[in-house]
Design a binder for these strands. Structure first.
Lengths: 245, 245
DNA sequence: CGGACCATTGACCATAGTCAACCGCCGTGG
DNA sequence: CCACGGCGGTTGACTATGGTCAATGGTCCG
């Protein structure tokens, strides 16, 4: 089984039960690998891509471009994520997708995915579920950015990213590589760089976690969860209910 | 064709092309009507519903319950919306669904929906698309609440609701019934009731729009769009591309 | 009639935004 | 080789915006 197929299969198996036939169908998807430089745009607002993106390595982000030229980052994606699955069924991108640091993605043609979903509805349901988890993450971001003070807001986002990374075995020694600058955290959380910096300093002083040199280190997960008021339920990472019509 | 089926079909036809067989399948969905009082919870956080909700009349909202007991409203839904479609594939609700004013919903069993989606993938794709538009609305809410000042933030939300209502022919004489109190607007936009009130007063003074007695009246759509920096692209309300595998 | 809830307004204050200066690092080019 | 410039991060001082609190009035309903 090729690399990208294995990554996709692993990801979907994180929440969905797939039959051997489903796995075989995944194995048949053709794809093309693409290396990305830091900050490189993969898809722009308004595009209508004909391939889907699977993150193979690194971190990919999605963002809205604002009238004043600034960005609002919407989400970050790690290995196994499908950051633009919605393009399968929507005719233009309402946001852009870019690489945060160096990254590698696999591009899978829409037509192969769609054909597989028609023939194997359960496989489609698994990807559908993936897009629904995506939406749950957006909902949490609304709440995070709208109703938590700066410290908790940063902590919550760190908790989420770390938790998701652990679920995909992407952490090493309680640290996670996140090539995201303070300006970018600011443009994610709806704060200013100064506030981000002060929040980071405060977090460091709690000894719960530390972000430095593009690495997030977790020192005390329990305390970190408390500070961020983090409850991972919304990530729906256990096996979810399977449709049994 | 029964009422609820007609409403659902109309909604899906707003963005998807459906065959006569697809429409026939929709007509076969059994459902139960339920009347809701203002503020009545329909689904609670943590529930695992076995029926899907279709809004038939009134306004329905979704919200996160916060640690401090306050609410963060995530979205509002008008006639034709499926405010909990994600429950089809996720095993517990990460948020609650409630009626904002008096409302009426149709409850459709998951098992009928899922069986139809297996037999008629295109029908499933249409509902999938619906959930993807939902996600696009969440993304816009992130941006709205995180990076627009109070005045623009209110205006943007009003624009979105009015635009969606017009698309479903739910406005009368440029006004829209929205049984949502100032506290609830505040809990939606991440502001305080005082700020909401001042923003509303300011909006009134622009003569672009007015919200009073649960009614939103649009006086000057062009100016309103400008104030809210509103671009309806993210609502994906034209016919979207159809899968042709 | 009394109480609850919603809307409105004013005065005060705290928080985060703004602005500016500075540091360290790195890559480039003289 | 070093000088330079740019970028990312850090910090301090000031300020403006929006949050807090309190008081008032209106309306609906029991």
């Amino acid at each position: 089984m090729s690399d990208a197929s294995k990554i996709l299969a692993e990801k979907l198996r994180g929440h969905s039960l797939l039959s051997n036939d489903d796995l075989a169908a995944i194995r048949l998807f053709p794809y093309q690998l693409r290396e990305l430089s830091p900050n490189e745009d993969l898809i722009r607002q308004g595009d209508d891509p004909s391939v889907s993106v699977l993150v193979v390595r690194g971190v990919v982000g999605r963002y809205h471009l604002l009238e004043n030229g600034r960005r609002q980052y919407l989400s970050f994606h790690l290995m196994g994520d499908l950051p633009d699955a919605q393009a399968l069924f929507l005719d233009h991108m309402d946001h852009a997708v870019c690489a945060m640091g160096h990254a590698c993605v696999a591009l899978i043609p829409h037509k192969n995915l769609l054909r597989a979903f028609e023939q194997r509805p359960k496989l489609g349901f698994a990807v559908w579920r993936e897009t629904l988890i995506d939406a749950a993450i957006f909902r949490e971001a609304i709440t995070n950015n709208s109703s938590r003070p700066p410290l908790a807001r940063m902590a919550h986002l760190f908790c989420e990213l770390f938790y998701r990374a652990e679920a995909s075995s992407l952490t090493q020694e309680k640290t996670l590589e996140l090539p995201i600058s303070l300006v970018q955290w600011a443009d994610t959380l709806g704060m200013r760089i100064a506030t981000v910096n002060r929040a980071l300093a405060l977090l460091r002083s709690t000894r719960a976690m530390e972000f430095r040199n593009s690495r997030l280190s977790v020192r005390n997960w329990r305390r970190m969860k408390d500070i961020g008021q983090f409850d991972p339920g919304y990530l729906h990472l256990r096996k979810s209910k399977q449709p049994s019509p």
